[in-house]
Design a protein around this nucleic acid. Sequence first.
DNA 1: GAGGCCTATGTAAACCTTTACATACATCGT
DNA 2: ACGATGTATGTAAAGGTTTACATAGGCCTC
Lengths: 343, 343
Amino acid sequence: MSNSTPATIEDVARIAEVSIATVSRAIHMPEKVANSTRLKVNQAIAITGYTTNAMARSLRLGRSNMILVVAPDIGDPNFSNILVGLENEARAHGYGILIGHTQNDAQRGLEYLKFFNSNQAAGLILFTGILPFGHQTMTARLPPSVGVFEPVFNGGIPYVGVDDTEGARKAVDLLLAEGHRKIAFIGDSRTRLAYTRRRMGYDAGLDAAGIPPDTRIVLEGDGTIESGRHAVEQLFMRDTLPTAFMCVNDQTAIGVMVGLGARGYDIPRDFSVTGFDDVPQAVFISPPLTTIRQPRTAIGKQAMALLLELLSDGRPTETEILLRPDLVVRNSVSAPSRNWLKR
Amino acid sequence: MSNSTPATIEDVARIAEVSIATVSRAIHMPEKVANSTRLKVNQAIAITGYTTNAMARSLRLGRSNMILVVAPDIGDPNFSNILVGLENEARAHGYGILIGHTQNDAQRGLEYLKFFNSNQAAGLILFTGILPFGHQTMTARLPPSVGVFEPVFNGGIPYVGVDDTEGARKAVDLLLAEGHRKIAFIGDSRTRLAYTRRRMGYDAGLDAAGIPPDTRIVLEGDGTIESGRHAVEQLFMRDTLPTAFMCVNDQTAIGVMVGLGARGYDIPRDFSVTGFDDVPQAVFISPPLTTIRQPRTAIGKQAMALLLELLSDGRPTETEILLRPDLVVRNSVSAPSRNWLKR
DNA sequence: GAGGCCTATGTAAACCTTTACATACATCGT
DNA sequence: ACGATGTATGTAAAGGTTTACATAGGCCTC
C-alpha cells in the first residue's frame, strides 16, 4: 500500500484475477462488465490504492486533461475570481488547470503554442482580448478555445463575459436619473471590443434620453489609472466640463478621481463618477465607487463549461454567453450640483 | 508542416537519416552526438516543427514537468503576485504550473493527493500554512514541496517568505520613534506561524524600548477584516486604550480602521495604525496604510528555484529562506495626540 | 600489425493505458 | 438439437519517448 512505486492497472488485475482490459473497462465503462467482476475489481482498487496514471492515459488517448489559462497579467485584479470559477468547474469534470501569463510578449505566446503541440493541454482559456501568438496566429492550429472577460478580437472564438453594453447602459441610466445631462465617456477604444461595447451602451442611453450626439464628450483611454488622470487634464483644457464621468473601467475611474482630487474637487459633490468591473479596490477608495459588477466567478464557471462542451461535442451550442451585469451603488454619484447645472 | 497530426521523433529521424535514439540524444545530450549529425537533426526538427510529446516523455521518465500550486483561496490578494514569480521561474526551467485551491476542504486536498499518485505533478508549492491533506497527511507519501508566504505548520517542509519578525520589528520601531508607548498588537495567533513570528517582533521591539510586558495589549485574531473590527470593540470595553494599533496584517488593519472610523475617530490624528503585507488595497484606503511590504514576486521566484533544486538534488541547500521586509510609510501613522498622551 | 579502448550510432525494451478484435460461453428460436 | 445472436472477458497492439546494451569503426600503444 505504502509501496515505493504506485500501483498499476496490472497489479489490480492480478489481485482481482482478471485481465487488465477488464479492469480498464470496469473503471471507464462499468455497464460493460458483470456485476460480480466489477465488485472484485473495485476491491482490488481499494486494496492497492490504484490511481490511473494520467500520463499513460493521455498518451494513449492523444489528449490531456489539462486546460491552459493564459492571461496577459496574472496580477490583474479581475483575474483571481474568474480563476476560482474556472478551477472549480474544471476540477469537477476531472480537468486540471494550468496557468500562464504572456506579459503581452509574443515570444511568450509562442512558447504556449509549443505547449499545445506537445499535447500538454486539451483546451485554452484566453483571458486577453487577443490571441497571444503574434503573427503566427493565422497559420497556427489552435486548440479548442474560449475567451473570457474580454471578447477575442482576431478569430471567431466563443466568448463568455458580462453584457458590456447593458452594463454601460445601467451606469448611464443611473447618471441620467440623477439629473446629469453632460456625461463624459472616458476610455473609448477601437481595439478593445469590451470598451467599444461599453461605449455603445453609453450612446444608447443618451440617445434614449434625447441628448444629441454632438454634445457628448468622449475621450479615448486604455483602461489604466494614468489614462483616467490624463483625461481629466484634457477636459480642463476645454471650455465645457461634464457634470459626470462615466469611466470604461474602475482603473480609469480611480485615475479620474485622483485627477479631480488633485484639483481640489470633491466627489460626488462637484462631479459624479462611475466605473465598471467592481474590482476589489472599488469599495476601499474614497469615496467608494459606484460601478458595474462583473459576475466573475460565474463567468469563469460558464466559460469552463463551454470549453468542456466544445471538447466533447466539437461544436459549442452558443458562441457568446453574456451574463447580466449588476449596478452596485456606492458613494461616487449624486445629483449635479447647482453650480455645474448653470453651465 | 501544417500537417494534421504533429510530427514525432520518428519523422525527424527519417528526415535526418538517423535512428530515433540519435534524435533523442541530439536533443537531450548534445555533446554525445557528432557535430555533423546534430546539424542534420536540428534541420530535420526545423523542417517538421517537431516538439517532443510531453505525455510520452513523462510516462517514460516517470515524472512530469508540472508543479502544483495549492492555495486555500486563489482570491487572496497576496496570491497573484507570488504566482507571477512562481510562474516566471518555473517556465524558465521548462516547468508549467498547475493551480488548485482547497477552500480549506480536506476532501479537496485529498483529490490533489490523488493527483500526485497519478503522476501529474512533480512538485508542490504550498500556499497555505498547513498541509491540505487532512488526517491522511501523516501516511501520505509527499512529493517534493516548498511552503511559501506562510511557514508550513505540520511537517518539515522548506519555506520561503518574508522575515516576519524583522518586519514586525520595523513597524513597532516606527511607532516607537513617533513617540507611542501604548501599542496594541492585534491578531495574535498560536496556530499561524507567521503571526506568531510577527508577535515576536512586536515583543522584541517593546523589550528594547524598555516597555514592561505586563503593560502591553495583545489581542487574538484570525487575520480577517472582521477580526480587526472586533478587536476595536473589545478594546473600548477596557479602561486603557492604546495610542497605536499594530496589526498582524493589512486586512486586520482595515478592520481596525473601519471600527475606529465608525466611532468617529480620525486616523492618524487620534490613533495610529500599521498593517503587514502591503496588499493592493493598502494604497487606496483612507488614509493610505503604513505597512510592511511582502516582496511577493521575489518570494515566488525563490520558492520555485528552491523547489526545482529539490527536484534535481533531492536535498535543498537551505530549509528556510527569509526575505527582507520593507517598511512602506503612508499616512496612517503620526505622533500620539496630546489628548491620548495624558491617559 | 594486433589487441584494446574510445566514440558515435543503432536496436529494442520499457513506461501504462485503451481498445479493436478474437474467443468462449450462454441463451433463444425454430 | 442446432445455428444464430448476444454478453463477458481476454489478447495484443499502439501511442512517443528514453536508455541500457550492442555494434562498429577509428585510433593508440606496444
